[in-house]
Computed example of a mutant assay.
Amino acid sequence: MTETLKIEGMGCGGCITTVTKALSAVPGISDVDVSLEKHEARFALNAPATREQAVKAVEDAGYDVKG
């Protein structure tokens, strides 16, 4: 299943790397694509990962998730 998170606080290429690494570290999340322009991250979400784990990973990396 493909998920999208709206993320606030990203402002540079380093932010893309940080969010990509944070999401990719969650078992079950793959194909992470972070857009600075759209302020969002799209990714494949498979068991055992949950949307809540994805949100927590992004927030733990220092960004706000708005949907």
Rank of each mutant, 00 (worst) to 15 (best):
M1D: 04
M1A: 15
T2A: 08
T2D: 10
T2R: 13
E3C: 12
E3K: 14
T4P: 12
K6A: 08
M10T: 09
M10V: 13
M10P: 11
G11D: 02
G13S: 10
G13C: 12
G13V: 09
G13D: 09
G14Q: 09
C15R: 12
C15I: 07
C15W: 01
C15Q: 03
T17H: 11
T18G: 15
V19D: 12
V19L: 10
K21I: 06
K21M: 15
A22H: 05
L23K: 08
A25C: 15
P27H: 10
P27Q: 07
G28N: 13
I29G: 00
I29P: 01
S30L: 13
S30Y: 09
S30M: 12
D31Y: 08
V34Y: 13
V34P: 09
V34K: 05
S35A: 09
L36T: 12
K38T: 14
K38F: 04
K38Q: 10
K38L: 14
H39L: 10
H39E: 07
H39I: 08
E40G: 03
E40I: 11
A41Q: 11
A41T: 05
A41I: 01
F43Q: 10
F43D: 09
A44G: 14
L45V: 02
L45Y: 03
N46K: 13
N46R: 09
A47D: 15
A49T: 12
A49G: 13
A49V: 15
R51K: 10
E52F: 14
Q53R: 05
A54R: 02
A54E: 00
V55F: 02
V55A: 05
V55G: 11
K56D: 06
A57L: 03
A57D: 01
A57K: 07
A57E: 04
V58F: 04
D60G: 07
K66C: 04
K66A: 03
G67M: 13
